[in-house]
Nucleic acid binder design. Structure first.
Lengths: 202, 202
DNA sequence: GGGCAACCTATACCTTTGGATAGTTTTTAT
DNA sequence: ATAAAAACTATCCAAAGGTATAGGTTGCCC
C-alpha cells in the first residue's frame, strides 16, 4: 500500500503515519498542506490512496478535493475531518471522494477502512448515517423556509435583505424569524444564529 | 514514564499512545472521557502525567481540569487541544495545569514536551505566544469592555441585559456595540456575534 | 372533498437597535 | 505633566426588529 497523508496537525499526521507503516505495512508519504501534497506526489509513483484533512491550508472546503482529483496523484482520494458535519461527508462522496474518515474512529477501524478503499471500494462510516437523524435537530424542527431565513440571520443580514434574497416581503421574513425563534427557544435573532452556528448548521 | 492519556478522538489517542510507548518508552494508559480517566487511575499507581483533551465529554471547559487536579491521580496534568484559543491555554496554566499541548505540534516535539513535564517543569508552547498577536485579531482590536459586551451579544442578550450584567447604563452598551461593530466591520450585532464565534472567541 | 401544515401577505403597535453628537472621568503612556 | 486612549453618561432621531391578529394560497394525506 502506498499512501499519501496530508494533514496540518503534525501530531496526528506523524502518529497516524507511523501507525499505518508499522501496523499496516504501508509506505506513507506526508504533507502539511494540499499544495505540498500535490507537489510531493510529482516525483513519486502513483499512490494507492490520498488522505486529505478537510480543514487544512489550501483546501477551502471541497474545492481542494476537486483540485486533488484533477491532479490524479492517487488511485483514490479520501477526506478526513474531526469536526465537519455529515453533510460535508456526503458532499465529499458525491464529488468523487472514495471515503470519509471521521477522526473519532479508532486507529484499527481506520486501517481497515484504508485497506477497503485501497481495494477499490468506497468507505462511508455507519456512525454518520445513524447520527444523521438527530445530528441536527434543527433540520427536523424547522421548515424549509425557516432554514432559509435562519441562514440569512447567520450571515448578519437584516430582514429586508433576506426578503430581497428570497424574493419575499419583509413581513414574511419577520414571521419566519418569530416562528423559528420560538421553535428553537431563542431569545432573538442573534441568539438563534448563535445556536445554529453552535450546532454546525450551515 | 507512566502516562494517562484521555482523548475522545480514538484515532489520535491510539496512535499517540503507540508513539509514546514505542518512541518514548513510556507506559501509557488511555481513556475516552474524563470520568473514565479518573476511574481508570484508581487501581493504578500514581501516573507521572495526565494528558486531557480540552474538548472531551466531562471536561466542560477548565472545570474538568480542576476535577482532575483534585483527584490527584498524576504528578501533573496537561491540556491538549486542537482548536482552543491561546487564552484557554493561559487559563489552563493559571489553574494549575503543567502544560498545554496544541495538536498542531509535531509528535517529536510532543514527546520532548512530555519528558520536560515529567521532569517537573511546566511546558507552554512558544508558537502560542508568538501567534497571540494575530491569532485573534479581535483580542487586540477590541478594548476590554468591548469584549465584555461582545460576549453578551454572543449569548443573545439585549443591550439592557448586558447593561444589567456589567452594571452599566444601556446607552453605554449601545456605544460599545456600535464601536465594536465598526472595528470588526460587522453590519450589526448579529453579524459581530457570528464573526466572534467563527474566530473561536469565547 | 375536508382537514392540515407550510407558506405568504397585510395592518398595527411597541420595543430595541443603530447612528450622531457632546461632554466627563479615569487610566495609560510618553 | 501632558497627551492619548478608554470608559461612562446623556439626548435625540431614524431604522429595524419583535409581537399580535387576521386572512389567503398551495400542496398533500386520508
Amino acid at each position: 500500500m502506498r499512501i499519501l497523508l496530508a494533514d496540518d496537525h503534525d501530531l496526528l499526521r506523524d502518529t497516524l503515519a507511523a501507525f499505518l507503516q508499522e501496523k499496516g505495512g504501508a509506505y506513507v508519504a506526508t504533507a502539511g498542506t494540499l499544495d505540498e501534497a500535490l507537489q510531493c506526489a510529482k516525483g513519486e509513483a502513483l499512490f494507492d490512496l490520498l488522505i486529505l484533512d478537510y480543514n487544512m491550508p489550501g483546501m477551502s472546503g471541497l474545492a481542494g478535493l476537486q483540485k486533488a482529483l484533477d491532479a490524479k496523484v492517487a488511485g483514490g482520494v479520501a477526506i478526513v475531518s474531526g469536526s465537519a458535519p455529515s453533510s460535508v461527508a456526503q458532499e465529499a462522496i458525491k464529488n468523487g471522494a472514495i471515503g470519509f474518515l471521521p477522526k473519532t474512529m479508532s486507529a484499527n477501524s481506520l486501517l481497515n477502512a484504508v485497506r477497503f478503499m485501497v481495494a477499490g471500494e468506497t468507505y462511508f462510516p455507519v456512525s454518520l448515517i445513524a447520527a444523521e437523524a438527530e445530528a441536527h435537530p434543527l433540520s427536523l424542527l424547522l421548515t424549509g423556509r425557516e432554514k432559509d431565513v435562519l441562514n440569512g440571520l447567520c450571515r448578519g443580514l437584516s430582514n429586508k435583505e433576506v426578503a430581497l434574497e428570497l424574493d419575499l416581503q419583509e413581513v414574511t421574513i419577520k414571521l419566519h424569524v418569530r416562528s423559528l425563534c420560538k421553535k428553537m427557544e431563542a431569545k432573538n435573532r442573534t441568539h438563534a444564529a448563535m445556536m445554529a452556528k453552535e450546532q454546525g448548521l450551515f
